[in-house]
Design a protein around this nucleic acid. Structure first.
Length: 110
DNA sequence: ACACTGACCACTG
DNA sequence: CCAGTGGCCAGTG
């Protein structure tokens, strides 16, 4: 596959998400200066299925919904992985999303 | 080359 | 509040 900067940046950033925290596609796209390209973030994540222990499960949509769960090995895998880190999930939605939301724009502060 | 899709998001009426 | 729309752009048929 072609390795673009965007691709690498997204992957780098996702690796930086602390355990027990989550972020959103939009937040990542926004931080990378591609605000309108949040769809691309999802696209990049879809190509990371072959990267062992890549924490793609820490990325959800802006509502805290586990929109990518169907792309994991098991439909419940994403939720399980989050639960292990102490992230509560109910009806495919991160319960305390606002509290544990990790915004690179703030956390990495420029 | 063209049309459509997608792990999305913000804006508009 | 809900539906529609535009923007982004790589992959696929």
């Amino acid at each position: 596959m072609k390795t673009t900067n965007f691709n690498n940046d997204v992957i780098e950033l996702v690796w930086l998400i602390p355990k027990g925290r989550v972020t959103s596609y939009g937040a990542i796209a926004n931080y990378l200066g591609a605000k309108k390209s949040s769809r691309m973030v999802g696209w990049v994540l879809n190509s990371t299925f072959n990267i062992p222990s890549f924490p793609a499960y820490r990325v959800v949509n802006r509502f805290g919904l586990l929109s990518g769960k169907s792309h994991f090995s098991s439909i419940t895998k994403m939720e399980e992985l989050l639960l292990i880190e102490g992230v509560e999930v109910e009806n495919d939605i991160v319960v305390n999303f606002k509290e544990i939301f990790w915004d690179p724009m703030i956390e990495l502060k420029l």
